[in-house]
């Protein structure tokens, strides 16, 4: 079972929603030899601003450099390391499992236990949608493995601070 890397950090990054910004951020990581474990991007309620959740890992000095280098990009509005703060993190996975009629009830029970959802079904397979933190998704996948997982698609992690938010796009 994959355990989250001990030096893993979740960075919440607000950026201008403009041409080329994703390339600048991704290029910064590759050009400076930093790691991206996952990255997810979407527009915020302000159409001019996008939010990125970047999961990375490294020693404290490296993470500090990543934050500083991100801040150097003209299109980066704000960088916040959520790791040490109270936050909620979620990932969404879509999993396609081999499943004939004899196994269906069994698998649906697992889906139920994990509070996942069945989103598609055919005579030979089942597609499941699950939301949760990394551990929960991994546990579900472990349970589904014996039936034969045909395909997994994951969103990468997104995260948000618990409680009040100071600014609109905090």
């Amino acid at each position: 079972m994959a355990i989250q890397k001990s030096d893993s950090h979740i960075l919440s990054v607000l950026v201008n929603n403009r041409f080329g910004v994703l390339a600048r951020v991704a290029g910064l990581f590759s050009g400076r030899n930093f790691n991206i474990d996952s990255l997810s991007v979407a527009e915020t309620d302000d159409p001019e601003v996008s939010h990125m959740t970047i999961v990375t890992h490294g020693e404290a000095q490296i993470i500090e450099q990543i934050e500083k280098q991100l801040n150097r990009l003209i299109d980066v509005i704000k960088v916040r390391d959520l790791t040490a703060e109270h936050h909620v993190e979620r990932e969404l996975a879509l999993v396609k499992v081999d499943c004939d009629t004899s196994e269906r009830a069994e698998i649906l029970q697992i889906v139920d236990i994990f509070r996942a959802k069945t989103v598609d079904v055919t005579p030979t397979n089942l597609t499941i949608e699950v939301t949760g933190d990394e551990g929960k998704i991994r546990a579900l996948l472990d349970m589904l493995h014996p039936y034969g997982i045909k395909q997994i698609v994951k969103t990468g992690k997104i995260a948000i601070i618990r409680g009040e938010i100071r600014t609109r796009n905090g």
Partner: peptide
Amino acid sequence: ILGITRPICKHSYL
């Protein structure tokens, strides 16, 4: 050229 120069300039515009 914006792709080529991205890591070697402070900022760029199209």
